[in-house]
């Protein structure tokens, strides 16, 4: 009588499942890094106007001296290239004071300056508009923390153009 050989089934155990999960996580991380968090995925650009308000006079002077047309901007959070400056200028900050008749008038702040500029920022385009670095929706008054090789500052967006293709 022929002996029937018992069939050995391959069964998954917890260890196997863990390994599969690790492999899947590695592949997912690789895909995210390559396609989602990579600057190459930033296919759009938008021209923004920005202000940096109430800085010391020496800071505004340093910004005017070190930032020119074409100066590259890096995102403070991850040091990736986020765009470049095309124009920059500085003016004294203002505050309100009372004149002799008790009216509120705008006068210069004794020490502070505002820096105004224009920059091209890289990002993506979505249903709700332009996303700086693909993550932050560009809105009037939104703040983007950036740095150059000399200055770190928080740019408050004051206008945003319609996004166009980066290349």
């Amino acid at each position: 009588m022929a002996r029937i050989k018992p069939v050995e089934k391959t069964r998954f155990n917890v260890f196997d499942i863990l390994i599969i999960l690790i492999v899947v996580a590695c592949i997912a991380a690789l895909i995210l890094r390559l396609y989602v968090f990579n600057n190459e995925a930033l296919t759009k650009k938008a021209e923004v106007k920005f202000s940096v308000n109430n800085v010391m006079q020496s800071t505004s002077e340093e910004m005017l001296k070190s930032i020119q047309n074409g100066t590259v901007l890096y995102l403070s959070s991850n040091e990736e290239v986020i765009g470049y400056v095309t124009d920059i200028k500085a003016e004294r900050s203002t505050v309100f004071a009372e004149d002799e008749d008790g009216n509120q008038i705008e006068v210069y702040h004794p020490t502070n300056w505002n820096v105004y500029g224009t920059a091209v920022l890289y990002g993506t385009s979505g249903d709700l508009g332009f996303y700086v670095n693909g993550t932050m929706r560009a809105e009037i008054n939104s703040v983007v923390s950036v740095f150059t090789s000399r200055v770190q500052f928080e740019m408050t967006l004051t206008s945003i153009s319609a996004p166009t293709d980066k290349n």
Binding site: F96, I105, V107, Y108, P110
Partner: peptide
């Protein structure tokens, strides 16, 4: 540390600057 007040002075060039 300075404290900016609600009054101002007019400089020789005509610009108005808050006193502190």
């Amino acid at each position: 540390v300075i404290n900016v007040t609600s009054s101002y002075e007019t400089l020789e060039d005509g610009s108005k600057v808050a006193k502190y």
